[in-house]
C-alpha cells in the first residue's frame, strides 16, 4: 500500500456541517484516482487537505512510511513532496515557461536542472516553448506547462483540480487522452477531481464518488458509472437482438 488516508474530517469555520466526513481510502503506486461529485460535495476539499492548504480536524495521511499528518503532526505544504495543478493553472506570470518549471527544482544541481527541464518539456511536447511567457501560450499549452511544473520535482503524488474545466469542449477529448498518457508515462500517482463523469471514465483507474462530504462508492469506472452501465445494457441488448435475428 503506497498511500493511506484514514478517517479525515474537516469543516470550514463559517459553516456547521462537515465539508468532509470520515474520508478514508488507499492508493497504489502509479494509480490514477478520480474524485467525482457535484459542486459542494467536498471534492475540492479533499485536494486542499492532501496538499496541506487546509488543516484537517481529525484523521491521518501517510505516503509510504512518512506521516504527512495525523493528530500530532502536520507537515507544511512545501515539505510534503506533493505536486498540484490548479484549476486556473497559477503559472507565475512574471516567469518564462522554463523558469516556471525550474521553480521547484532549487535542490537540483545546475546540470540536473537543465536535464530535468528538457525531460518534462519533452514529456508534455512543448520543447520549443521554454522561453515564452504564460500569456503567450494557448489554454491547452498553459495546462501542459502547469503539469510539467508539478511533476518536474518528481513528487510522490500529483493533484489535479478540475483539469478540463478551462478548456473548450473540442479540446477536452484530445487532452483527456494526452493527460492519461503523460501520467502513465511518468509513472506518477495522481488524484484529480472533476464533476464530469466522462472525464473520470476516460482517465481514472478508480473512481471515488462523493456526496455531501461522504464517500458514496469507490470502484473501477466500468463498475460504478451510469454511462458505462447504460452502454453495457445497450451492448447486451444489441447482442441479444443480433442473436435473435440470427436464430
Amino acid at each position: 500500500m503506497f498511500i493511506s488516508i484514514d478517517n479525515v474530517c474537516f469543516s470550514y469555520s463559517n459553516t456547521k456541517t462537515a465539508a468532509l466526513d470520515q474520508f478514508s481510502m488507499t492508493i497504489e503506486k502509479g494509480e490514477v484516482i478520480s474524485i467525482l461529485g457535484p459542486s459542494g460535495s467536498g471534492k475540492s476539499t479533499v485536494l486542499r487537505l492532501l496538499a496541506g492548504l487546509e488543516k484537517p480536524e481529525d484523521g491521518s495521511f501517510n505516503i509510504q512510511e512518512t506521516v504527512i499528518f495525523n493528530e500530532k503532526k502536520f507537515l507544511q505544504p512545501e515539505k510534503r513532496g506533493i505536486g498540484m495543478v490548479f484549476q486556473d493553472y497559477a503559472l507565475f506570470p512574471h516567469m518564462t515557461v522554463a523558469e516556471n518549471i525550474m521553480f521547484g527544482l532549487f535542490r537540483f544541481k545546475k546540470a540536473a536542472k537543465q536535464e530535468r527541464l528538457q525531460e518534462v518539456l519533452e514529456l508534455v511536447e512543448l520543447e520549443g516553448f521554454a522561453d515564452r511567457y504564460p500569456y503567450q501560450l494557448s489554454g491547452g499549452q498553459q495546462q501542459r506547462v502547469a503539469i510539467a511544473r508539478a511533476i518536474a520535482p518528481k513528487p510522490h503524488l500529483i493533484l489535479l483540480d478540475e483539469p478540463f474545466s478551462n478548456l473548450d469542449a473540442e479540446l477536452q477529448g484530445k487532452i483527456r487522452k494526452e493527460l492519461r498518457d503523460i501520467l502513465k508515462k511518468a509513472d506518477i500517482t495522481s488524484v484529480f477531481v472533476t464533476h464530469d463523469e466522462n472525464d473520470a471514465h476516460a482517465i481514472a483507474d478508480r473512481i471515488v464518488k462523493l456526496k455531501d462530504g461522504k464517500i458514496e462508492v469507490i470502484g473501477r469506472p466500468c463498475d460504478i458509472l451510469n454511462i458505462n452501465r447504460q452502454a453495457v445494457v445497450e451492448a447486451v441488448a444489441l447482442v441479444e437482438q443480433r442473436d435473435m435475428m440470427s436464430v
Binding site: P77, G83, M84, F103, F106, R149
Partner: peptide, 21 residues
C-alpha cells in the same frame, strides 16, 4: 492565494515564496 499555494507545493517556504512570487 493560488500563486502562493502553487509555490509552496513546489517546495518553497513562506518567506521564499514572499520574495520570489
Amino acid at each position: 492565494t493560488n500563486f502562493r499555494d502553487a509555490s509552496r507545493l513546489l517546495g518553497m517556504g513562506i518567506t521564499k515564496t514572499f520574495f520570489k512570487v
